[in-house]
């Protein structure tokens, strides 16, 4: 099992299902009944959430985001991995060694 702080580009990532998700004012909001918490993923976080509906490597995720947004590879990789670690801390995603 991959722990927070150890996510790399070679890992694959996928949503954990079972949350109530909605779009509100262009931002993705989510209620986890299991955690008893409400989350606001924001606009970019919402895009990431949609892209990880099915299993995808972190590398592919970064590539897709770079094709949609004006961002450097270094910045995108760093900020996406940091965000994924936050999601992992909240048990909202699962991380595996890439297929």
């Amino acid at each position: 099992m991959i722990k927070s702080g150890n996510i790399s580009l070679g890992h694959s990532v996928k949503q954990i299902k079972g949350n109530i998700v909605s779009n509100m004012g262009g931002e993705k909001v989510m209620l986890s009944v299991k955690n008893g918490k409400y989350y606001n993923l924001g606009e970019i976080g919402g895009e990431i959430w949609d892209l990880i509906e099915e299993e995808i490597s972190v590398n592919q995720l970064v590539a897709k985001l770079m094709s949609n947004f004006v961002v450097t590879k270094t910045e995108c990789e760093k900020e996406v991995i940091t965000f994924l670690e936050l999601l992992l801390d909240e048990s909202l995603i699962e991380i595996k060694d890439s297929l």
């Binding site: 918490k37 924001g42 976080g45 947004f69 004006v70 995108c76």
Partner: peptide
Amino acid sequence: MKKEWKKPELQVLDVR
């Protein structure tokens, strides 16, 4: 057309 990038952040509110 590419959109502007903003650092993704997660806001958490404990409903309980």
